[in-house]
Design a protein around this nucleic acid. Structure first.
Lengths: 338, 338
DNA sequence: ATGAAAGCGCTAACAG
DNA sequence: CTGTTAGCGCTTTCAT
């Protein structure tokens, strides 16, 4: 036997099993009409030959790849990971597979990524966020497949949406903080230009403060997103020095908020007695740290699960018009605030 | 214009640009020999038609997909995310794209996943860990593409390896703990059957204790992997009740170790004065929490980066025999231990 | 630098 | 339930 020969094809399997290639093809599908004995004979022949089904040929001929393309800002983020996992689990039942890429919080990178993903001919594409370059919008609009924007409520959606208002979510935290008596409230976030969800949260903060008749001069930019725990800690240090009268801080994520808590611990500043802290995203750290962290649950897994359901419905033709699934984030009160 | 017509192909672009399809194909490649004017005319025609290159056809004809298949236990783990990001960055320069799947710490799930991934005809496959089902081993061995096992040093590697000894890494922490005076050392990990890296760490713990003439009865199983912060905290509670004389704990990951720290904080037990705690993985939490966490840096990003380099070398034919890249984890001493 | 012909391995479409 | 024919959209190969 030559070991350097080409891998076996369906024709080889068909020959060995004494059937036609078409029957082999059918034997590899769940629903296809093949007699039990024939299927078993085919699968046995395939196994003996070490045959591996070739999706690339199947993809071209059937014009189906069973890919769902997904873009997320960062692969190293528990919120987006939760969304992707739920999405992946939801569509895998139907044999659909996630084709994942990350944008590094950069719309130019998103444009390159979207173009690359569309070349693979996915059945649908899920993007995180509702802000894109004009070319990205055009590519998505003309792709001829379902487009789902998530983690945001875009003003002019491209297609379907499964998301929430980042501004509104933060507004509710501000409302609560003001109601319990905080006035000199600060916001720690990333440089606004890149992370549009972070920018929306900051805008929601400023607008809410204004509605309460409060100024919002206490804005700390902690660097380009994503903001790490360390950067949250550094930002807290800056805040304490520049605005020592601050009585509460809202952070763009739980990670930066936890960093802020640790900075207070290192400086001997009591949380929440001297300063209250709120985060965003309901990461595990916030539930378990001491003091535990007041935060906003954006239901990352639900976003993924509902996106999966939406995709399946659209592919089944069950949806006449673009879907609009609005998530309502939950304010979770814990020990880090009154 | 009909909007429901089929998307344009290279033939359509060729027709519009007044060239042959072959020239269009060449115009879309970086290196191909096409005159500047011709290429510009082709790309203009493509843009006007809204043409999107079809990878599925290219994949079949050229027998190249430019996919690198990767399996990780969980998509929601900062260590594996770091590896995947570095790997992705390393291979993307050459136009290679990651095709990612997760096994949920289950070798049966790994088998299904590997089979599914191989059908997509990747250029190489990277798996996390060195323990597999017999069928997975067979599939990988016969795949005819480079196989790279990572995050482990398998006794019988399938192909290439980029990893480290989990047992040895924990042994070094035990050696240090014993050297500074701890004797009643416990280990908190997951149920052994599933997370083989976790099991290796526990085995390394037990063996190291034995070499120091110490028994290792203090083993807390915190549930099926991955072990969360919460499960680490619960395990710490159990440990304190069942073995109150414990003077140090080594946890299977920084996440469970941080949970253990918080449990001590809730119970008013001083770390490290009453009990020392060590983790694994050098997650950001361990560097910033108070007290900061003694841990082991397994160089997750380096694993990804070196795997990328290995893949590129193999695909370039620069490697005659299987590559063996051994990472040496670093013990990082911080405030949670003496 | 460009073109013509052939075919990658599978499956849609149709036939029986 | 099974088989035959044709072709998915590109790129390999060979010309010029």
């Amino acid at each position: 036997m030559h070991n350097i020969r080409k891998p076996p094809t369906m024709a080889d399997v068909a020959h060995r099993a004494g059937v036609s290639p078409m029957t082999v093809s059918r034997a590899f599908k769940r629903e296809a009409s093949v007699s039990r004995e024939t299927r078993e004979a085919v699968l046995r022949a395939a196994d003996e030959l070490g045959y591996v089904f070739d999706s690339t040929a199947s993809n071209l001929r059937s014009q189906r790849t069973d890919f769902i393309a997904v873009t997320i800002p960062s692969i190293n983020n528990a919120n987006f990971a939760d969304t992707v996992r739920a999405l992946s689990d939801g569509v895998s039942e139907r044999g659909l597979q996630i084709l994942l890429g990350y944008t590094n919080y950069d719309v130019q990178e998103e444009e390159r990524l979207v173009e690359q993903l569309l070349r693979r001919k996915p059945e649908a594409i899920v993007v995180t966020g509702g802000k894109h370059t004009p070319r990205t919008r055009k590519l998505l609009t003309n792709a001829g497949i379902p487009v789902i924007e998530t983690w945001d409520l875009p003003e002019e959606p491209i297609g379907h949406v499964v998301g929430f208002s980042n501004a509104q979510a933060v507004r509710e935290m501000v409302d609560h903080f003001v109601a319990v008596g905080y006035r000199n409230i600060a916001f720690i976030g990333g440089d606004a230009s890149r992370d549009t969800r972070g920018a929306d949260r900051r805008a929601g903060f400023i607008a809410a403060m204004k509605d309460h008749g409060l100024d919002a001069p206490r804005l700390i930019a902690a660097g380009p997103p994503p903001i790490s725990m360390r950067e949250g800690a550094n930002a807290m240090g800056q805040l304490l020095e520049r605005f020592p009268d601050t009585d509460a801080v809202i952070c763009v994520s739980d990670l930066s908020a936890y960093g802020a808590i640790t900075e207070c611990q290192r400086r001997g500043i009591a949380v929440p007695e001297k300063i209250a802290i709120g985060g965003f995203g309901d990461y595990e750290i916030g539930a378990i740290c001491v003091p535990s962290l007041t935060t906003i649950n954006a239901f990352a897994s639900e976003i993924g699960g509902k996106t999966a359901k939406l995709i399946l419905d659209v592919l089944d033709g069950k949806l006449g018009e673009p879907g609009r699934v609005t998530i309502r984030p939950d304010l979770i009160l814990r020990q880090s605030s009154l």
